[in-house]
């Protein structure tokens, strides 16, 4: 192998080894176009690293909520959200929800919170992907009678920074630190 080819091969390998961990934390989300037509409200967010960087430039560092958001997204390489609201109960196909849940049984993903509320008929699963001692992926699957949501965050996640966003942008107070709600 010529030196130039060897150098190129090494560069490609180095780039792949850098990209692999983040890519693993990204879930293959089904094509929900059919669901969009039936939903009364749809939220579809797909932000890759370049769009996250671009969005960060439009966050005002002088505003506390924007500064907190900027800190929360530092180190993230992807944010993918699909949320559908329906006018009738359980109008979404369970198979599509299960196909995403199955991906979370892959090595690396660990369940953080699993809630099955028979009274409210809510199922919420929060998974975290850990590599070494660092979290590099977060997945939330929430199925409620009239709402179905998948959140997939890729990149190094600092839950404390996410927590600091409480009370901003319509994010409720989570009281994860035991603070009492006013």
């Amino acid at each position: 192998m010529k030196p130039l080819q060897a150098l190129l091969a090494l560069l490609v390998l180095a780039a792949l080894s850098q990209a692999a961990p983040a890519a693993d934390a990204r879930l293959a989300l089904p094509d929900f176009r059919a669901l969009e037509a039936r939903a009364s409200e749809t939220v579809s967010v797909s932000l890759d690293s370049s769009l996250i960087g671009l969005a960060a430039r439009f966050l005002d560092p002088d505003k506390p909520e924007d500064a907190a958001a900027r800190q929360a997204i530092a180190g993230l390489t992807g944010i993918y959200v699909r949320s559908f609201t329906f006018d009738a109960d359980f109008a979404y196909p369970q198979a599509e929800v299960d196909s995403v849940r199955k991906q979370l049984s892959a090595p690396g993903w660990q369940p953080l919170v699993q809630v099955r509320s028979h009274k409210e008929r809510n199922d919420v699963d929060v998974y975290i992907r850990v590599e070494g001692s660092k979290a590099n992926g977060l997945a939330i699957i929430a199925s409620e009678p009239r709402e179905f949501t998948i959140v997939n965050i890729v990149g190094s996640i600092d839950l404390q920074k996410l927590h600091e966003l409480e009370g901003h942008f319509g994010i409720p107070q989570l009281k994860l630190d035991g603070k009492k709600q006013p």
């Binding site: 939220v43 809630v115 959140v151 965050i153 409480e166 989570l174």
Partner: peptide
């Protein structure tokens, strides 16, 4: 919007 939805679902889990 993504942060809002994420916060809401974490609140639901909580």
């Amino acid at each position: 919007e993504a942060l809002r939805v994420t916060g809401q679902k974490l609140d639901l889990a909580y």
